[in-house]
Design a protein around this nucleic acid. Structure first.
Lengths: 110, 110
DNA sequence: TCTATATGCATAATTCACTTATGTATTAAT
DNA sequence: ATTAATACATAAGTGAATTATGCATATAGA
C-alpha cells in the first residue's frame, strides 16, 4: 500500500481516466478496478470515493443512471462530453507534474 | 505552475532529496533551487516550507546551524545520518507510486 | 529620496481533500 | 447462523497545505 499522502490530489484524475477507459461503471466496481490495475496498492476508501463522484457529477463531468439489481441499488457513472474533454487535460497535467518531479528529485521514471 | 493539489505529500521528499544532492542549504536557498530545477513550476511557499523544515528537524532528520550574515540571520539545514538513510526510501517510495499511477492511468512516463 | 523588490525567517488562521467512523441494506459463502 | 462481500451514503476529525500577517535587512530603479 502506498503512502496515502502521495495519493492526494490524484483521485479525481484516477476516476475520470478509469471511467474513460472502461465506460459506464458503478462506485464499487471502480474501487475493484483500481485495486486490480494498481496490484492492490491503491485501495480507494468509500469516504473518499462517493463524495468525489458526487462532486464530479455536480460539476457536470459525470452523469448517473440508477439501476435496481434485484433489490440492490447500483448507480452507474458515465463521462459527460465536458468530462470527456477534461480527462486528457487532467492526465497530461499529471504527467507534466511527474516529469517536473523527476527533474527535482533527479530520478529516472522508466 | 503545477496544480498545487498534486504537490501535496511530496514536499518532505523534495526537501530531503534536494538537501542530499546539494548539501548544507538555508530555507530561501531551497526555494530558489527547487524553482530552478522545476523550471519555475514548483514555487515553495514560506508557510509550507518553514513548518516542514521545523518538523523534519524535530524528527531528527535535519540539523541546523544559525549563521549571521552581516545583520541578517541565516539558518542552514543539513541531513543527519538518520535523515540521509531515509532519503533513498522516500524517493523510491515516490518512484513506486509513480509507476503504479502509470499503470492505473495507462500512460507512459518517459 | 523613496519605494518597490528581493532576501530571510517565522507563525497564526483557514481551507479542503482526505481518513476514520458510522449507518443502512442485500447477497453469498462456510 | 454468522461472517465477508457487495453497495450506497454521510458526518466527524485530521493534517498538510494555502493564505495572511509580521518582522527585518539589502538593493535597484525612478
Amino acid at each position: 500500500m502506498h503512502s496515502p499522502e502521495l495519493l492526494k490530489g490524484t483521485l479525481q484524475t484516477i476516476l475520470l481516466k478509469v471511467l474513460k477507459d472502461h465506460g459506464k461503471m458503478y462506485g464499487y466496481e471502480i474501487t475493484q478496478r483500481v485495486k486490480e490495475l494498481s496490484d492492490g496498492r491503491i485501495l480507494l476508501t468509500e469516504g473518499a470515493l462517493y463524495p468525489s463522484l458526487h462532486k464530479l457529477e455536480a460539476e457536470g463531468l459525470l452523469k448517473t443512471e440508477t439501476v435496481m439489481m434485484g433489490k440492490r441499488v447500483r448507480k452507474y457513472y458515465t463521462l459527460t462530453p465536458v468530462g470527456k474533454s477534461l480527462v486528457k487535460e487532467r492526465v497530461s497535467e499529471f504527467v507534466d507534474f511527474i516529469r517536473t518531479m523527476g527533474n527535482v528529485l533527479q530520478v529516472e521514471l522508466n
